[in-house]
């Protein structure tokens, strides 16, 4: 069991529109990961859908933060709040 890979768990809650990362766990395969996630992360009726993905399959950005993200810093017009939205537009 020490060799069981690590899995990341994503849960969509009842009201949620998308799956959110809630944590990780160990399991021998995908089915066990789903069942473990059910027991570890949905005990209080948190979810209606679970995704699991082996942590090894997640690729994270490793670039130096400054170069990677800073160019977006001074582009305030990219934020939706920069514009006046008509009342009819929902979910922004």
């Amino acid at each position: 069991m020490k060799d069981w890979p690590l899995w990341e768990v994503f849960i969509r809650s009842k009201q949620g529109l998308s799956h959110k990362h809630v944590g990780s766990l160990h399991a021998a395969d995908a089915q066990m990961a789903l069942e473990n996630a059910r027991d570890v992360y949905t005990r209080r009726n948190e979810g209606i859908s679970i995704w699991v993905v082996e942590s090894a399959h997640i690729h994270a950005s490793t670039e130096d933060t400054e170069a990677f993200f800073d160019p977006a810093n001074d582009k305030i017009y990219r934020h939706p709040t920069f514009y006046d939205l008509p009342d009819a537009v929902k979910h922004m």
Partner: peptide
């Protein structure tokens, strides 16, 4: 439990 995950499953 043999691992945390099954420990919780048993308790559930």
């Amino acid at each position: 439990g043999p691992v945390l995950e099954q420990d919780i499953a048993m308790t559930n």
